[in-house]
């Protein structure tokens, strides 16, 4: 029997609308949607398209832009400042990835292993509370912590360790790591909660089975927890990489211009400086386009390489 024998012949039945009765007319709905879509187009897509176009132009603010093809990209390929900013980003990124993916996981594990539900709740609240403090305030506090009258220097002086005192954000050897260390102890609330949600979603049957099979606490974490929260880890990895590549607010506040020298300059800040300080908007757009392409390539590659679905409970491995 082939498929055609079971399909009834004759006129096709009218498509049934799945809209609930009493819904407003479609014209009205589309009409109302048009305005936000227009705003989206004007304020999001048009500037993005404009940036894409201007990446291939020489465009000083206030002047006419001039098409130069790949000129900006060629200039970037030999720009030592841009290279330095990439190197800084790489070092900063490695550090941030390691701590942002590992420490929140450890925090989530500790909360998950608490016996009292009330204690778990209190810990979750404690993780969320610092998030109400605006990031700018946090960076300002860290700036003060690193200052000559701040906690680190005053602490060392109190211990009689004057020779250990550095200009934490001013010295070329310490500046980047001082920036990286902002956020210590790195128990990021959202990250830990995402991990915790993943752990809480693991079926109790699996955990019981693991216990029956004699897996110890470390074994359970390595062989059960980690594979089953890879989906969350992937999400956090993408969020963190996007944050690290695009973000420069902390650096702008802490070292202002990416100094000393170019020791804390990252591509995002370099893009900002080119656009708004040097008024080389075309060059800035080219940096922005490179950042976008990197993030797209990274996200697509990660999605292809790390197929987390196979670890989901109830699915067989592929």
């Amino acid at each position: 029997m082939n498929a055609s024998t079971i399909i009834p012949s004759g006129p096709r039945p009218a498509r049934r609308s799945n809209r609930p009765p009493g819904s407003p007319p479609l014209v009205l709905i589309y009409g109302l949607l048009a305005l936000p879509l227009l705003f989206l187009l004007v304020f999001n897509y048009v500037p993005a398209a404009s940036a894409l176009y201007h990446a291939f132009t020489e465009w000083d603010v206030g002047a006419e832009s001039r098409w130069i093809g790949l000129g900006n990209f060629k200039a970037l390929s030999v720009d030592p400042v841009f290279r330095q900013s990439l190197w800084n980003l790489f070092r900063l990124g490695c550090f941030v990835l390691i701590v942002n993916l590992s420490v929140p996981f450890l925090v989530a594990e500790m909360i998950f292993h608490l016996r009292s539900e009330r204690a778990r709740y209190a810990c979750r609240v404690a993780l969320v509370l610092p998030m109400v403090v605006p990031g700018v305030v946090v960076f300002m506090i860290w700036k003060y912590i690193y200052s000559d009258a701040g906690l680190v220097t005053e602490g060392l002086l109190a211990l009689g360790l004057r020779d250990w005192v550095y200009g934490w954000l001013s010295h070329p050897k310490t500046a980047l790591w001082a920036v990286a260390f902002v956020g210590f102890p790195f128990a990021h609330g959202v990250h830990a909660l995402i991990y915790y949600a993943g752990l809480a979603n693991i079926s109790p049957d699996i955990l019981e089975a693991a216990e029956v099979d004699g897996l110890g606490p470390i074994g359970r974490i390595v062989r059960i927890h980690v594979p089953l929260i890879l989906q969350q880890a992937k999400l956090l990895l993408i969020i963190t990489v996007i944050g690290v590549v695009n973000g420069f607010e902390a650096i702008l506040i802490l070292t202002e211009d990416g100094g000393p020298g170019y020791e804390t300059l990252v591509p995002g800040l370099y893009m900002y400086q080119n656009g708004f300080t040097y008024q080389r908007m075309g060059y800035a757009c080219a940096i922005g386009l490179l950042m976008l392409m990197f993030l797209l390539a990274f996200t697509i590659s990660l999605n292809r390489l790390l197929k987390t679905e196979r670890f989901e409970p109830g699915r067989r491995g592929t």
Partner: peptide, 18 residues
């Protein structure tokens, strides 16, 4: 001069007798 030149409040260092 102080080690952390860029982000210290120099007047505060002076006023607090550092």
């Amino acid at each position: 001069w102080p080690k952390e030149l860029k982000n210290s409040d120099p007047a505060r260092l002076f006023l607090t007798e550092r």
